[in-house]
């Protein structure tokens, strides 16, 4: 597998404001790459540069070896984007719009009609095919927008907030469809603020803040990078005092151990590797463990760790 998207020294300024500020990033071929970041962090601007809608102020992006500045026509043949806000004329009806889109991306008229019907039925919007766009609900408009990309099936598919405004059932269906697209060896970039979506879909994640990449890795790697991010919770019986907490602290190499109402909480990294040591230590101290549970940090925690900390610093 090679690099599908190579971003080097990317800067995009709007007036004096740098929306993207020296971004470097490689997105591997065939992966689902999640791009996380608060509003205004530069996610959408980066995606729009990859899609050749914006031009970089400095730096460059290569898509399968083609530069967005030197050969944008080639890049556009490889990249497709489903925008955060659905794009259509109010006088459009979904069917005509999608047939037009399908033909622009290479379908013949007959194939376009067939493919559009299939995708509209799959997304359960066929019944809305003849309505004006202005008459559609937000969720239906969003489905029309992402249907464009499922029709196009580009080598690099960019979804900007793909399931915003969608109901739970449809969200899962769309996630399945995105994963199916990956099975067809497409590279997929998903910009999202939905941590469940990022966790479910992403092979790797990038957290972007103030136009810069703050963290990069698999969801598990990023969770592990939070100091003492895992929590082991023990429900215990027996004498538990300061000596017990100190012993646990030494054995597990952590300073964060506390006891409240018979529940012992120990904060560590890679809790699954340390739980046996913890139980053994408790046993040696004469404490009986009734139950144990391990909680990993969520991506919310990861997001706050890499961006929230800096937000506080900025105040």
């Amino acid at each position: 597998m090679g690099v599908a998207v190579k971003i080097r020294g990317l800067v995009k300024k709007f007036g004096n404001f740098a929306a993207v500020n020296g971004l470097n990033l490689d997105i591997e071929e065939g992966e689902i790459f999640g791009l996380l970041g608060p509003n205004g962090s530069g996610k959408s601007t980066t995606l729009l540069i990859i899609a050749t809608v914006y031009k970089p102020t400095e730096g460059d992006v290569e898509v399968h070896g083609h530069s967005v500045t030197k050969s944008p026509d080639e890049v556009r043949r490889l990249v497709g984007i489903a925008f955060q806000e659905p794009k259509a004329l109010w006088v459009d009806n979904p069917y005509e719009l999608l047939v037009w889109h399908a033909m622009v991306v290479g379908y013949s008229f007959l194939d376009a009609r067939r493919a559009v019907r299939e995708i509209m039925e799959e997304l359960e919007i066929w019944e809305h095919r003849g309505k004006l766009f202005s008459e559609l609900s937000g969720g239906t408009r969003k489905k029309v927008e992402i249907a464009k990309l499922f029709l196009q099936k580009p080598k690099v598919a960019i979804f900007d907030e793909p399931t915003a405004q969608l109901d739970v059932t449809t969200r899962h269906k769309v996630w399945d469809m995105i994963e199916a697209l990956k099975e067809e060896r497409r590279t997929i970039i998903v910009a999202t603020n939905d941590m469940a979506e990022a966790d479910r879909l992403s092979d790797r994640l990038g957290i972007i803040y103030k136009g810069n990449l703050k963290a990069l890795g698999t969801p598990a790697e990023l969770k592990d990078r939070i100091p003492a991010g895992d929590v082991m919770e023990f429900s215990i019986e027996g004498q538990a005092g300061e000596h017990l907490l100190a012993a646990l602290s030494r054995a597990l190499n952590t300073e964060r151990v506390n006891l409240t109402n018979g529940t012992l909480k120990v904060y560590v990294n890679r809790a699954e590797e340390k739980v046996a040591v913890a139980i053994e230590t408790l046993s040696k101290m004469g404490v009986k463990v009734r139950s144990v549970s391990i909680k990993e940090p969520t991506l919310d925690d990861v997001f706050f760790y890499f961006t929230g900390a800096q937000l506080r610093e900025g105040r």
Binding site: D73, A88, G106
Partner: peptide, 18 residues
């Protein structure tokens, strides 16, 4: 109007030469 509705962005992203 198309600029305001983001349709120019959409068209600029299509696999069509400028």
């Amino acid at each position: 109007e198309e600029f305001e509705d983001g349709l120019v962005d959409y068209q600029l992203s299509l696999p069509v030469k400028r």
